[in-house]
């Protein structure tokens, strides 16, 4: 306590409402129908979309709409102590809320009996991986040409040293007092994903939510720039 913010600046020199550096690239994989790569602070995340394609086995199909199946997976080498490969309870929960958040903007009714598979691989992790993953997945969905009402963007706010801040880094996440990751539909500012753990008063929550929405909107701008860059390049070729 009292170590994470000094003279109004955070340990990496950021202001409370400042994001870590973010780099987004669309269409980075050859085989996937759509893909994206995101570097967000120390996070490196790759997302690939396959589909819409026929969902097998057939009994899993929904005759009225496509099933959206996001899978969040951490590479064993992405964290300090090697993570045992395969889904653990944390990644199963993140996969579930990520699937739900992304499905909320996809026109799934256009693809009955189909599945849209979204694979998110966390290659290097440094706090905020679920937001980086959703951000990458959203760009990959757009790159795959999946019809969506909006391109979701995600960002977290939190509290460290009693102060509401944007986009926690590892030390802030571990020693901070609260973490509030969200995903929004930037056009309407509707909430697609919201999780929180820690301790926030209602006032602090309002402040953190406003900050997280602001961060998400900036991320949204970067997502759109990345998509424009890719399709401009294709045009030039």
């Amino acid at each position: 306590m009292g170590e994470l913010i000094k003279d109004g600046l955070r340990i990496d020199g950021r202001k409370p409402d400042e994001l870590r550096p973010i780099k987004i690239e669309a269409g980075v994989l050859y085989r996937a129908d759509g893909s994206a790569y995101v570097e967000w602070g120390g996070n490196k995340v790759l997302a690939a979309v396959y589909g819409p394609r026929e969902l097998l086995p057939k009994h899993m199909q929904d005759p009225t709409k496509a099933v959206v199946n996001a899978r969040y997976n951490m590479a064993s080498f992405s964290v300090e102590d090697r993570k045992r490969p395969g889904p653990d309870r944390r990644s199963i929960e993140i996969s579930k809320v990520t699937s739900e958040a992304l499905e909320s903007v996809i026109f799934t009714e256009l693809f009955p009996r189909a599945v849209i598979d979204i694979n998110i691989e966390i290659l290097d992790a440094e706090a905020g991986t679920r937001c980086a993953g959703i951000t990458a997945a959203a760009v990959a969905l757009a790159d795959a040409g999946i019809p969506m009402r909006d391109i979701p963007a995600a960002c977290a706010a939190g509290k460290v040293d009693g102060q509401v801040v944007l986009d926690l880094r590892k030390e802030e996440d571990q020693e901070g007092e609260a973490d509030l990751p969200i995903a929004i539909a930037p056009r309407t500012e509707e909430i697609l994903l919201l999780q929180m753990d820690g301790h926030l008063t209602y006032k602090e929550f309002e402040e953190a939510l406003e900050l997280a929405i602001k961060g998400s909107k900036y991320v949204s701008k970067l997502q759109k720039e990345a998509l424009r860059r890719k399709y401009k390049k294709v045009e030039e070729e």
Binding site: E100, A101, I191, L192, Y202, I213
Partner: peptide, 15 residues
């Protein structure tokens, strides 16, 4: 005070 939150399912909430 708020200690945990979770939004679930594929619908949306306004702020």
């Amino acid at each position: 005070d708020i200690r945990a939150m979770q939004k679930g399912l594929k619908g949306r909430f306004t702020v």
